[in-house]
Amino acid sequence: MSLRRALPRLQPSLEVPGFLKQSAGLDLPGRLLFATLTLMTLIAILVFIEEAIYIYRKIPSSKRSIIIWINAAAPVISTTSCIGMWVPRSTMFTDYTVAIFFAIVIHKFLMMMIKECGGQKVLLRRFENGHFTITTGPCCCCCLCLPRVPITRQTLFWLKLGTFQFAVFRPVLVFLSIVLWTNGNYVLYNVSPKRPALWISCFIGALTLCALWAVGIMFRKVRILLKCKNIIPKFALYQFIVILNHLQTTIINIFATQKVIPCAPPLSSTARGSYIAQQLLIMEMFLITVISRVVYRRKYHDLEPPECVAEEPGDKKQTPEVILNGAAVEDALPKV
């Protein structure tokens, strides 16, 4: 008898995982929605894997890793959003994972534009007498009085530093935020001047603007030269990811904290706002993943030699682009 009485104490208590509790609390339309969004995430991952294999086989090694990083942005955001949707308590960690990853992607996109021009040395030869127009967004689009900056090795270094600092300091600030959050000192929606969330968010915002400004300056200079490589659609996809992942999520979170998004027990306003943001991101990143496969999978010719390259309107040297058989013909350049 004593052994039988002891048996129940020896049996481990089984707890239902969080994602099973989440699915059990959904009605039929909710389960269909979660299943559909999860399927879209899986398809996005498979599309990216197939695209990464193609890039690894067809793209030169100097550009291979950069293009894979950029193409991975949308699937990674979709995957982390799906995890946050099923496991609500992981939202903070998934959001910070995306923040770190996308900080690296911004730097990679700048490096991709430099690589597509033939590398740093070839880019300096192409725009030997050219200038960077720094009156561009998001920092100085209204400051028309700012002078144009000559394109030199030093100015190119400062542009790369503008995105590199974001890729370095953003993970450090994210790690600091997680440490403060585990100690109860960091609350994302508490914008009191006495709390660290406000100051960390402002510092991250300033670093983000500097990084986006550097990318905008480079894109404004090379958009005509790289038009034959579809740099404009690529930049548009990159901008969509920035807007949807940062601006859209921020607006939804503000609406949730201000109770514009009503609560629906057992979900609070902030929880519903987080669900809405994650579900929208899954659908949007799925579309961007499919479009990116079309844009980046095309085969492009190499650029013309630096001596025959046209400058932007307003520069001194201008040479029309050579068109053969309806496509821009670009001679092969030495690898840098």
Rank of each mutant, 00 (worst) to 15 (best):
L28F: 15
T41S: 12
L46E: 12
V47F: 14
Q11H: 05
P12F: 01
K21S: 01
L7Y: 13
I45E: 15
G30D: 10
A44D: 03
Y54T: 05
R9A: 11
L32I: 15
L46P: 08
D27L: 12
A24R: 09
T36C: 14
L33K: 10
G30R: 02
P17G: 01
I53G: 10
V47R: 15
V16F: 02
R31I: 13
L10I: 05
A44C: 02
L46N: 08
I53D: 11
A44H: 08
L10G: 03
V16R: 00
T41H: 06
A52D: 04
D27R: 02
Y54G: 02
I53S: 09
A35E: 11
L10N: 04
L10V: 06
L7E: 11
G25C: 04
E50A: 12
E15I: 02
L37G: 14
L14W: 07
E15K: 02
L37M: 12
F19S: 08
L7H: 09
Y54I: 09
Y54V: 01
F34W: 13
K21Q: 05
D27H: 01
V16K: 00
L28C: 08
P12R: 05
R31Y: 05
P17F: 01
I55F: 09
G30E: 01
P17E: 03
P29R: 14
V16E: 10
A24N: 09
L37Q: 14
Q22C: 02
I53T: 04
P12V: 07
L33W: 09
T41M: 11
G30N: 05
I43M: 07
L46M: 11
L28K: 12
T36K: 09
I55E: 03
T41A: 03
L26T: 07
Y54P: 01
G25T: 10
